[in-house]
Design a protein around this nucleic acid. Structure first.
Lengths: 127, 127, 127, 127
DNA sequence: GTGGTCTAGACCACC
DNA sequence: GTGGTCTAGACCACA
């Protein structure tokens, strides 16, 4: 099962989760992915909702459909999602970060030390 | 007037704008703010929409109401909104940033140089 | 000054306060009471609000006006307000009490002991 | 249908009615409740008015929303509303009662006999 | 189907 | 003048 946040629509959260699967290489390029019905059962949501996710990702060129067989990640899925993510990072996430830093008067140094701290915690967890 | 984005509901964008007014000290703590009707005219939206904003901010403790007189910023409005913003920054924005940095293999150094670049641009604009 | 509750309108809260003055005999029957302006200053409210209170109490026959001289409590003010209060007590307060007692499954005995406790506290305060 | 009183706003009266449904176990904890539209039709009011009620009760933690599906009573709805009601009873209703009793010089014994009388009337109605 | 947002316009109590 | 409530009706995203 999966915990969904209130803010974002469910089908987009499932999409995020699938993109993450590609980035961390649970799913490799060109690989078959679970059917809509399987995903719906696993996620405990309505199949219509999963269909929306799959349509959305297909529109974006991340996955594609072979009729009667199933859905597959695109041959360039990993490169594709990384490029998309970088675009969003540069155009949206970073400006928001900088804006917040200025109004909260947080210096880059503080961000740096928080990052290093979070890196260490990540290592400890993975040990 | 004000330009509204598609993604976020109007009443929340007005709320953001009002919070910004507090942060940049257009509105000081405990000061009277424009009436619902005035804001509605100025923003070119329906008074009901502004009322939603005011209710929302009143629930959050940012503004309060004196009956028959109008709305006022809270005595600790500035401190309040900064604390709230910092909380969101630490708990949500920063983890998302770090996660994206790891997926995209972006180093803190790159962030740093981008920040300095953005600072310079800001200075040039203000000259 | 006086602290007003949010729920009830200010002019009615002032009226309650004045009625209380009659019941505890701060104001005796037929006595002159402070002018609208004096009360407004003392209560830190708009004179219009106090005027509303005085009109309201005059309509109810609790106070009356001698033109150019001021406001006075009615000759039967005390008896009047006590009768009114008893009416509200029987018709409204008591039924609500009983309804709440039933849904919360509170017995009359518990009410009794709470009342005795509150009596004792009152005595201790007045010592 | 439902009869609304003049004094209290409709959306709060609907809220009271829904809380009563929880107390008398017409609605059990965690159960789906009628949609906004259904309630609006049944109560003969505008859907916006019902939406206010639902928002109000959601803020209070009595009900919650599953997107696209509907509203549900909270898992602890019954306990929640009883605790809230008791709190108001102890902190507000009871002090007012005692104050009125003292002003009117009504003894607890009289209250007791009135309560027993009201209990008998209730039994006769239900026969 | 569900709720959420927004507009337009009305009426009210209150300060 | 102020805010608060309510109606009517529209449009939208979402499940």
């Amino acid at each position: 099962m999966m915990q969904f946040k209130e803010q974002k629509s469910i089908y987009l959260q499932i999409a995020d989760h699938m993109v993450e699967n590609i980035i961390v290489k649970v799913w490799k390029n060109g690989e078959r992915i679970p059917s809509i019905r399987e995903t719906a059962i696993q996620m405990e949501v309505n199949p219509n909702t999963v269909m929306r996710t799959y349509n959305y990702l297909q529109d974006k060129g991340v996955i594609f459909n072979k009729r009667g067989i199933g859905y597959f990640t695109a041959p360039d899925a990993l490169e594709h999602v990384l490029a998309e993510k970088k675009k969003i990072f540069i155009q949206q996430q970073l400006p928001e970060l900088f804006k917040a830093m200025r109004s909260l008067q947080i210096t880059p140094k503080e961000i740096l030390s928080l990052y290093e701290k979070s890196e260490k915690e990540l290592h400890n967890e993975n040990q």
